Amino acid sequence: MDGETAIRKAYESILKHDFEQAVAWFEQAITLDPGKAAYHYKLSITYARSNKLEKAIEHAQQAVDLDGRDEHYAFHLQHLQAKRLLFTAEKLFDEPEERLWLAVELLKEAVELDPLSVEGFLLLGMAYHRLGEYAQALRSIKELLKLDPQHTIGRRLSADYEQKWKQYMKNATLRGMLAERNENSHE
């Protein structure tokens, strides 16, 4: 048996919704032809669909290492790395505020790796909002809405964050005016 035969059997298994068998066939193809980047890429996709993210990243990296010129392999790897950052950041949402800043940094990196990540912009907006950074929260949600203008949660959060931003700016203006008046009265 050669690698291409194993790949065909993997796809037959996928059509039968037998993803574990598909993984076994993809691994067999890799054993038969370990230098074939496409085999690692295909196995990575199957692992990703089976929510085995670390294994998916491992094989996506191998595909890139074997054929770094293929943009599909590089984009797939970046997408998976961004997904891992999202999962890690989301776990920090229940932590104290200083850990939420770490989540923001991870989410910023995630959307840089995958600028089409609706979930990344949503989580980034929510993290900024929880930190009281309304301008950044609104900016993140607006990026989400550029990608998916009909995103129900994004539309609701956009209206909510816009209102909070306006209230924040109004309060800041009032504080500034009061501070200026207090300075003038002391002169």
Rank of each mutant, 00 (worst) to 15 (best):
E4I: 11
I7V: 13
I7G: 04
K9Y: 09
A10M: 06
A10E: 06
A10D: 03
I14G: 00
I14P: 01
K16L: 14
E20F: 00
A22F: 06
A22D: 00
A24H: 09
E27V: 12
Q28A: 13
Q28Y: 04
I30Y: 04
T31P: 01
P34E: 01
Y39E: 06
H40K: 11
S44F: 00
S44E: 02
A48P: 12
A48Y: 10
A48E: 10
E58M: 15
E58N: 14
H59G: 12
Q61W: 01
Q62L: 15
Q62Y: 11
G68T: 10
R69L: 14
H72Q: 15
H76L: 12
H76V: 01
R84P: 01
L86P: 06
L86K: 03
T88Y: 06
K91W: 02
D94I: 02
D94K: 06
E95L: 03
P96K: 10
E98W: 07
R99D: 13
L100M: 11
W101T: 08
A103W: 11
V104W: 07
E109M: 07
A110P: 01
E112W: 12
P115L: 02
G120C: 05
L122N: 01
A127W: 00
Y128M: 05
L131R: 08
Y134D: 03
R139M: 01
R139S: 06
E143C: 04
Q150R: 11
H151T: 07
G154V: 06
A159C: 08
A159R: 13
Y161F: 15
W165L: 15
K166F: 10
Q167K: 12
M169V: 08
K170H: 04
K170P: 02
N171F: 08
T173P: 02
T173H: 09
L174D: 11
R175Q: 11
R175G: 01
G176Q: 10
M177N: 13
M177S: 13
A179W: 11
R181K: 14
N184L: 15
H186K: 14
